[in-house]
């Protein structure tokens, strides 16, 4: 029983990352009709916003420590962050320690700006082109973005830590009345899942309960009619592209303590996120979320030792097998709408 709960938890937090990226992809596809293969790169850029803020907060001056030697036998040069000089050692260290949560504030405007520039500068020129052209240009853009990041940050992964208060794990099993030690789960992964739930809820509420959201939904349903009513739907869709970029970026920021980021992390998520979108139903926001969580849980269960021993290799193909079965039985995906990508 504890193993089942453990894998469900795992699947939920893994699936929440898939769902966040798929949500952004679906927003862009649903509003602009663009198949955005650069969306994984936006996830990666968000993670590197956190790295950048951490480096800004860690900007240092050099102090020579005569008591220690460097690798060449010279007195050791110790880097002392400016924030420690300005706010005192413990406060300065705490500010650096909290750089990942602080990066949320930094990332939102940066990613909205990147999204808007991307849409206005490149993607709008491909609205009326075939999906194949859109895929090619956005995939090319993703490669360019990741090579830029690699140039500045290197190819190796960069360690990013959760704040000390959330480092490590806790006894989840004891909390729900099970035997102590039965389910040990990391704090940050639970935080990630809760953060994803809030973010998804926020985006859906924004679309559901604001006038802006209402217009966007109307535009998604019938763009021409909304335009005929004198509403500048293009401008709203551009903003939605920015919001989708910010959602992907925030997913990336919060993911950095789970896996140290590198330039390739977006590509690692891209294919699976498209599978999530297709399984959920092209253009369906709830479908993307449902499929993300479902496939995350399936992947977790397929990684169990007992399952692998029974069906060797199942952990590598389970998502695609599930996608085949779902698409054979429900060709439009779990919650797909009629007419989307069927022309």
């Amino acid at each position: 029983m504890d193993q089942i709960i453990l894998q469900i938890l795992n699947g939920l937090d893994k699936g929440s990352a898939y769902a966040l990226i798929a949500l952004g992809l679906t927003l862009i596809f649903g509003t602009l009709g663009v198949v955005n293969f650069a969306h994984g790169a936006l996830f990666m850029l968000g993670a590197f916003c956190a790295v950048t803020l951490n480096r800004i907060l860690s900007l240092s001056h050099t102090v020579i420590d005569e008591t220690k030697k460097d690798f060449l036998g010279n007195p050791l040069k110790v880097e002392v962050p400016y924030v420690q000089g300005w706010f005192g050692e413990s406060t300065g260290q705490a500010i650096i320690d909290w750089s990942v949560p602080l990066a949320i504030l930094f990332t939102i405007p940066v990613m909205i700006a990147i999204g808007v520039i991307m849409e206005r500068g490149l993607i709008k020129h491909f609205y009326k082109r075939p999906h194949a052209d859109q895929i090619l240009v956005t995939f090319g853009l993703a490669i360019v973005l990741q090579e830029i990041v690699k140039y500045y940050f290197g190819a190796n992964q960069i360690p990013m830590n959760a704040p000390q208060a959330f480092f490590g794990s806790f006894d989840f099993g004891a909390m729900i009345g099970m035997e102590p030690g039965a389910i040990i789960y990391p704090y940050w992964r639970i935080i990630y899942f809760c953060f994803a739930a809030v973010l998804v809820g926020g985006v859906l509420a924004f679309l559901q309960f604001t006038t802006f959201g209402m217009v966007v939904r109307a535009g998604m349903a019938d763009r021409e009619t909304v335009g005929l009513l004198g509403i500048n739907i293009d401008r709203r869709f551009t903003i939605m592209f920015g919001i989708a970029a910010a959602v992907a970026g925030l997913a990336g920021v919060m993911y950095t303590p789970i896996n140290p980021p590198n330039y390739h992390m977006g590509m690692d998520f891209l294919v699976i996120s498209f599978v999530v979108v297709v399984v959920g139903g092209m253009g369906s926001l709830p479908g993307a979320i449902l499929a993300g969580l479902l496939l995350g849980i399936l992947e977790s269960f397929a990684s169990m030792r007992q399952i692998i021993e029974l069906l060797p290799g199942i952990n590598q193909v389970v998502i695609y097998l599930a996608a085949i079965v779902i698409l054979l039985t429900r060709p439009r995906g779990l919650m797909g709408r009629k007419g989307v990508m069927e022309d």
Partner: peptide, 16 residues
């Protein structure tokens, strides 16, 4: 899998 990035589902059962 060589392409695996998140090892949580492989690591989580180890303790028990």
């Amino acid at each position: 899998p060589l392409a695996q990035t998140d090892f949580s589902s492989y690591v989580a059962p180890v303790l028990n």
